[in-house]
């Protein structure tokens, strides 16, 4: 499972955070406190939790109406803003749900500067595929 410190080693990482499925911020690392603070991360986490839920509803609906598969469960949500992006993941939680675990870890996210953002690397770290050197 990715750690906040691993996420902070991604290119252009501004902040990394953990949050509940209901959106409350649990822990964070901030590289540039003059640009982004804990209050902003808390709102961002709530926005991302809402989007994960909405995307889950859409994935289930889409699979039912089209008979296409592979959208559910939602693993990551990414918002590419004007200058910043946020990538959040529930990948590890979904894995544990499949194993019938009832105690689930928090969701994790990272805020990236768009100019040097590497979304593939962010997905890889959030999914625990590879450590950042």
């Amino acid at each position: 499972m990715a750690t906040l410190d691993e996420l902070m080693r991604l290119p252009a990482a501004m902040a990394a955070f953990e949050f509940r499925g209901s959106g409350e911020l649990l822990d964070q690392r901030i590289a540039y406190p003059e640009r982004i603070n804990e209050t902003t991360l808390d709102l961002l986490a709530h926005m991302c939790a809402a989007n994960m839920s909405i995307a889950t509803m859409q994935a289930r609906g889409w699979e039912k109406v089209t008979a296409m598969k592979g959208f559910y469960p939602i693993q990551e949500f990414t918002l590419v803003g004007f200058d910043w992006s946020v990538v959040v993941s529930g990948f590890r939680r979904e894995q544990l749900k499949n194993e019938d675990k009832t105690s689930l870890p928090p969701l994790m996210g990272v805020v990236l500067g768009n100019e040097k953002a590497d979304y593939e690397a962010a997905f890889a770290v959030l999914e625990g595929q590879e450590p950042i050197p």
């Binding site: 592979g70 959208f71 469960p73 693993q75 949500f77 990414t78 918002l79 590419v80 979304y119 997905f123």
Partner: peptide
């Protein structure tokens, strides 16, 4: 720096 957003990605299984 968030708005207007450029795009979005929803990544499923």
């Amino acid at each position: 720096g968030w708005t207007p957003p450029h795009g979005w990605v929803v990544r499923g299984a």
